[in-house]
């Protein structure tokens, strides 16, 4: 146990946790509203969408790939699902069924292309982002769906308690979706054989083939799971927005990537954890929330995000370089 703790202390996640907690403590004292249940609930609700996307993306990164197209996939999934719900009485099951099926199918298409074309996954998925998004905008003419079915617009939210001013604490679909997404990803990566195969593939693709892991099938799991998460997240987002705009999500893909990388996942594959992803996202969310609560004009949020991100990736790179040099020394003097 102590051994495990010491091991954890040396990880990127531990340092990230330290920074995040320090920031939380600072904000709790510096602002009136940060350390409140209401603020926490608000944060969970508004960061549910990027969080669920991050939960999907970390799986792709662990498997040694990269997906840029998921915002377009989510846009298509939510558009089709809500359109169908408005026209036919398909209910919750139908709504989620359509969104998840569409998302997964497009993810699988990505997997086929990435594996078959043998060019960098970033290039394939950039191209597919344009294909998906272009076709969606072309077919819909860019029209927004303004009215959601009532049962969906107001559904799945429960008042669980009241604060001293009788404001309700609400448990909603966003929170459930977010927690579910992270639990599912954690189970996939750490508790299933396929998750371990994905990690092995990301760590050494050549060896994975030799051991007999099926690369196409694993890519289909990774990109399909990303698509599945995009489908799920798309509905969660649609409910927050209360409209479906075909161009609302595209453009946020790099923000999600930033959160996952901040959480320690490597673009070279094989490295990345659910805890890290949660912390990476939490750090960005708390930073942006804190700036607003501190009264910094919201125009400066992006600038601070950029600084924090640059500092973080520089530290990660520096740390990895140090470790590499240390290992080389150990090997060099092993005699």
């Amino acid at each position: 146990m102590r051994n495990a703790l010491r091991r954890f202390g040396r990880t990127h996640e531990a340092r990230l946790l330290l920074v995040t907690v320090a920031l939380m403590i600072f904000l709790s004292f510096a602002t009136k509203n940060f350390f409140t249940i209401q603020n926490a609930l608000d944060l969970l609700t508004s960061y549910a969408f990027p969080g669920m996307m991050a939960a999907g993306l970390v799986v792709v990164l662990v498997a040694g790939g990269l997906d840029i197209s998921f915002t377009a996939v989510a846009s298509i999934a939510q558009y089709l699902a809500v359109l169908a719900a408005n026209h036919y009485g398909i209910g919750w099951l139908g709504l989620f069924g359509i969104a998840l099926a569409v998302g997964t199918a497009l993810g699988l298409l990505n997997a086929l292309l990435v594996t078959g074309l043998r060019i960098a996954s970033i290039i394939v998925t950039i191209a597919m982002l344009n294909v998906y998004y272009g076709l969606l905008m072309f077919v819909t003419g860019g029209d927004t769906i303004n009215s959601l079915p009532d049962w969906f617009a107001n559904g799945l939210s429960w008042v669980v308690a009241f604060d001293s001013h009788q404001n309700p604490y609400i448990l909603n679909m966003q929170m459930i979706g977010l927690v579910l997404a992270f639990i599912m990803t954690w189970l996939l990566l750490n508790r299933t054989s396929v998750g371990r195969q994905l990690r092995a593939l990301g760590g050494n693709p050549e060896a994975a083939k030799r051991v007999g892991f099926n690369v196409l099938r694993l890519n289909m799991v990774a990109y399909g799971y990303m698509g599945f998460m995009a489908g799920l997240a798309s509905l969660v987002q649609a409910q927050v927005a209360q409209t479906v705009m075909p161009n609302a999500l595209v453009g946020r893909e790099l923000d999600v990537l930033a959160a996952v990388v901040l959480g320690g996942a490597s673009l070279f594959g094989g490295v990345g954890t659910v805890l890290g992803t949660i912390l990476g996202l939490a750090l960005l969310a708390i930073l942006q929330n804190g700036l607003i609560l501190l009264g910094v004009a919201s125009f400066w949020t992006e600038c601070f995000t950029g600084i924090v991100f640059l500092v973080a990736v520089s530290t990660i790179a520096w740390e990895r370089r140090r470790q590499r040099l240390a290992i080389r020394r150990v090997i060099g003097t092993a005699a």
Binding site: A258, T301, E302, G306, I307, L310
Partner: peptide, 23 residues
Amino acid sequence: YLEVSPILTTLGMMTLIKGISIG
């Protein structure tokens, strides 16, 4: 010099300088 991967460096720089422009 810091050996940060180009994608991440320029992604961060993009956010930072766009942030400055918006700010």
